[in-house]
Amino acid sequence: MTAAFRKPEPQHENPDRFIAAMAGAAAQVSVVTTDGPAGRFGVTVSAFSSVSAEPPLVLVCINRRSPAIDAITANDAFCVNLLRDDQADIANCFAGRPGALTPYDFACTDWQTAHTGAPVLSGATANFDCTVETAYDAGTHRIFIGRVRQALGHNAAPLAFSGRAYQALRPL
């Protein structure tokens, strides 16, 4: 093949420009929790999505530097707790920016125990108790696909993250 017919190599975006552009996205804030033989851990994430309704599957993306990665893998379960718009302090606690709270301390709020053993945040907008279906590494993160064993929904306004700040979403 001659040079005239070769596709140009794709360019890779500068990570700083990518992060700046992603600040324009809005995402629900959640705390992903796990408990079991590998210990009790929680971490704040904004990368959460449904995957399938039949069977019910969700995904979360967690930075591979987080100790929650090994715990979720070993415990084979996690719960995605979608936060209310008045739960920014919980989001900060499990993001390691606790203010007056202790980082990653479950004593910052009330928890129940899910069927899988994972902590379930009382009063969240929704909780998805999952067993690990599969996991993939992608860049700096691990993507966990969870099979939802129990889903609970509550009528509450969600906490969102956009423009590098927490936001309250309200109907238009």
Results as ranks from 00 to 15, higher is better:
residue 82 L to E: 02
residue 64 R to Q: 10
residue 132 V to W: 11
residue 78 F to G: 03
residue 134 T to P: 01
residue 133 E to A: 09
residue 119 P to N: 03
residue 137 D to I: 13
residue 114 A to R: 09
residue 138 A to L: 14
residue 100 A to T: 07
residue 93 C to P: 02
residue 105 D to S: 13
residue 64 R to S: 04
residue 148 V to Y: 05
residue 154 H to V: 10
residue 127 N to K: 13
residue 128 F to M: 13
residue 153 G to A: 08
residue 113 T to Y: 10
residue 77 A to Y: 06
residue 116 T to Y: 08
residue 94 F to G: 02
residue 148 V to W: 07
residue 123 G to V: 04
residue 97 R to A: 10
residue 93 C to R: 07
residue 159 L to I: 05
residue 84 R to Y: 07
residue 155 N to R: 15
residue 158 P to E: 01
residue 154 H to L: 14
residue 58 V to S: 06
residue 111 W to T: 05
residue 58 V to C: 14
residue 127 N to Y: 05
residue 94 F to E: 00
residue 142 R to D: 00
residue 57 L to D: 12
residue 90 I to N: 07
residue 68 A to L: 09
residue 69 I to S: 00
residue 132 V to F: 09
residue 119 P to F: 01
residue 135 A to C: 13
residue 104 Y to Q: 00
residue 96 G to S: 07
residue 156 A to E: 06
residue 113 T to D: 14
residue 138 A to E: 08
residue 109 T to Q: 07
residue 108 C to D: 00
residue 118 A to I: 08
residue 104 Y to H: 09
residue 147 R to P: 12
residue 76 D to R: 15
residue 115 H to S: 12
residue 114 A to C: 14
residue 119 P to R: 03
residue 152 L to H: 12
residue 116 T to W: 06
residue 108 C to A: 15
residue 98 P to H: 00
residue 147 R to M: 11
residue 146 G to Q: 06
residue 128 F to G: 04
residue 81 N to E: 01
residue 150 Q to C: 06
residue 135 A to K: 15
residue 83 L to G: 07
residue 150 Q to L: 10
residue 95 A to E: 01
residue 149 R to L: 13
residue 57 L to M: 15
residue 87 Q to D: 05
residue 63 N to P: 03
residue 115 H to R: 15
residue 132 V to C: 10
residue 135 A to M: 12
residue 81 N to R: 11
residue 82 L to H: 09
residue 87 Q to P: 12
residue 105 D to F: 11
residue 159 L to Y: 05
residue 103 P to K: 11
residue 159 L to G: 05
residue 161 F to S: 10
residue 85 D to I: 08
residue 159 L to Q: 05
residue 75 N to K: 14
residue 150 Q to Y: 04
residue 78 F to Y: 15
residue 80 V to E: 02
residue 113 T to C: 12
residue 96 G to L: 07
